[in-house]
Deep mutational scan, measured.
Amino acid sequence: MEVRTIKVFTTVDNINLHTQVVDMSMTYGQQFGPTYLDGADVTKIKPHNSHEGKTFYVLPNDDTLRVEAFEYYHTTDPSFLGRYMSALNHTKKWKYPQVNGLTSIKWADNNCYLATALLTLQQIELKFNPPALQDAYYRARAGEAANFCALILAYCNKTVGELGDVRETMSYLFQHANLDSCKRVLNVVCKTCGQQQTTLKGVEAVMYMGTLSYEQFKKGVQIPCTCGKQATKYLVQQESPFVMMSAPPAQYELKHGTFTCASEYTGNYQCGHYKHITSKETLYCIDGALLTKSSEYKGPITDVFYKENSYTTTIK
């Protein structure tokens, strides 16, 4: 009895394709271990004539594949690729409408935090270190965002349907971005203890939790000093293409032309909904596939993004 075979390709990165001759009487799992086709788990399936010449994702289970996976995804987590594939199996079914010149995501599976993050990423200057993220990001900007969303979920250790947080998501993504040249110098002034300067680099240099107003941050924000008295913390120097200011959701007025974009969060910790506000020729609110415009805006804002380049204080 002759062994019926077909020729397929296996890959971990969709760049390096490895030619395989597979036995049609055995499952993919018996031949390769966990195997995925377009995100779908085909591990328990036997090869079919229609699979001839198709590319299958496999887990990096030998040295060659491990090197290829690390170079593309910059992670050695053995569960990463499987999590990416199972997320992709959902995100490829989502709709990605162009809204006001940006790629958004039609609401499904509690994905409003991903839509808000995706919209924000198209408006701030950011370059990702893992080629996987950078490639998928370019495709997302062009309207094909399924891979990018699935990668975000995998890097953030999230599953489809789980509630997510924009600030946490951005923080994970910033860790995989090139923020080497970003720098922030802060000064804390206390009447009792004097003053202390701190220099922050990388992710810490672009994120701040405690106030939404970048102007206020430049002037000074009140913080408790270690001595128990009130101290003032203010920005001395900022070198970065953008800054992200966050605070627990509270009524906040966004003035046209003073910011790049913002995240609105309605609801409580267990259950809520994100919308995205962007400042173009007027203010726009993007909620999944829905767009509304207004000249002014007041609502429960939790993150505001500002364009920056270089700032030095005039406070002496």
Rank of each mutant, 00 (worst) to 15 (best):
Glu2Ala: 12
Arg4Met: 11
Thr5Gln: 13
Ile6Asp: 04
Ile6Pro: 07
Lys7Phe: 13
Thr10Ala: 11
Val12Glu: 10
Asp13Trp: 05
Asp13Ala: 05
Asn14Lys: 11
Thr19Cys: 11
Val22Thr: 11
Ser25Thr: 09
Gly33Phe: 04
Pro34Lys: 11
Pro34Thr: 12
Thr35Gly: 07
Tyr36His: 13
Tyr36Arg: 05
Ala40Glu: 09
Val42Asp: 05
Val42Glu: 08
Thr43Glu: 15
Thr43Asn: 10
Thr43Arg: 11
Ile45Lys: 15
Ile45Glu: 12
Lys46Ile: 09
His48Ser: 10
Ser50Phe: 14
Ser50Cys: 15
Lys54Ile: 15
Thr55Arg: 12
Thr55Ala: 14
Tyr57Val: 14
Tyr57Gly: 07
Val58Gln: 07
Val58Phe: 07
Val67Lys: 14
Glu68Lys: 10
Phe70Ile: 09
Phe70Asp: 09
Thr76Ser: 10
Asp77Asn: 09
Pro78Lys: 13
Gly82Trp: 14
Arg83Pro: 03
Tyr84His: 05
Lys95Asp: 09
Gly101Pro: 03
Gly101Met: 05
Leu102Gln: 05
Ser104Val: 04
Ile105Glu: 02
Ile105Trp: 03
Trp107Gln: 06
Trp107Pro: 05
Ala108Val: 09
Asp109Met: 10
Asp109Ile: 01
Asp109Lys: 06
Asn111Leu: 04
Tyr113Lys: 03
Tyr113Val: 04
Thr116Phe: 04
Ile124Ser: 02
Glu125Ser: 11
Leu126Trp: 02
Asn129Ile: 09
Pro130Leu: 02
Pro130Ser: 08
Pro130Thr: 12
Pro130Arg: 03
Pro131Ser: 04
Tyr137Phe: 15
Ala140Gly: 04
Ala142Thr: 10
Ala146Trp: 09
Asn147Ala: 12
Phe148His: 03
Ile152Asp: 03
Leu153Phe: 07
Ala154Cys: 08
Cys156Lys: 05
Cys156Asp: 01
Lys158Met: 06
Thr159Ala: 15
Val160Asn: 04
Val160Met: 03
Gly161Met: 05
Gly161Tyr: 03
Leu163Cys: 10
Arg167Pro: 02
Glu168Pro: 01
Ser171Asp: 06
Tyr172Pro: 02
Leu173Gln: 00
Leu173His: 00
Phe174Gln: 01
His176Met: 14
His176Ala: 05
Ala177His: 02
Cys182Trp: 07
Val188Ala: 06
Val188Phe: 08
Val189Gly: 06
Lys191Ser: 14
Gly194Pro: 08
Gln197Cys: 08
Leu200His: 14
Lys201Tyr: 10
Lys201Pro: 02
Lys201Cys: 13
Val203Trp: 15
Val203Phe: 15
Ala205Glu: 04
Ala205Arg: 01
Val206Met: 02
Val206Lys: 01
Val206Asp: 00
Tyr208Trp: 07
Met209Pro: 03
Gly210Cys: 02
Gly210Trp: 01
Leu212Lys: 04
Leu212Glu: 04
Leu212His: 04
Ser213Phe: 02
Tyr214Phe: 09
Glu215Thr: 08
Phe217Met: 11
Val221Arg: 05
Val221Ile: 10
Gln222Asn: 12
Pro224Gln: 10
Pro224Glu: 14
Cys225Val: 00
Cys225Pro: 01
Lys229Phe: 12
Gln230Tyr: 12
Gln230Phe: 15
Thr232Leu: 12
Lys233His: 12
Gln238Pro: 01
Ser240Ala: 06
Phe242Ser: 01
Ser246Gln: 00
Ser246Tyr: 02
Ala247Leu: 03
Ala247Trp: 03
Pro248Glu: 09
Ala250Tyr: 14
Gln251Glu: 13
Gln251Gly: 06
Leu254His: 01
Lys255Thr: 10
His256Gln: 15
Phe259Tyr: 01
Ala262Cys: 02
Ser263Ala: 14
Ser263Pro: 02
Glu264Cys: 06
Tyr265Thr: 00
Asn268Arg: 07
Asn268Val: 06
Cys271His: 12
Gly272Gln: 02
Gly272Thr: 01
His273Asn: 03
Ile277Glu: 01
Ile277Thr: 01
Thr278Glu: 03
Ser279Arg: 01
Ser279Phe: 01
Asp287Gly: 00
Asp287Met: 02
Gly288Thr: 00
Ala289Cys: 07
Leu291Gly: 08
Thr292Asn: 06
Thr292Ile: 08
Lys298His: 15
Gly299Phe: 00
Thr302Asn: 00
Lys307Ser: 15
Asn309Gln: 14
Ser310Asp: 14
Tyr311Met: 09
Thr312Val: 15
Thr312Glu: 15
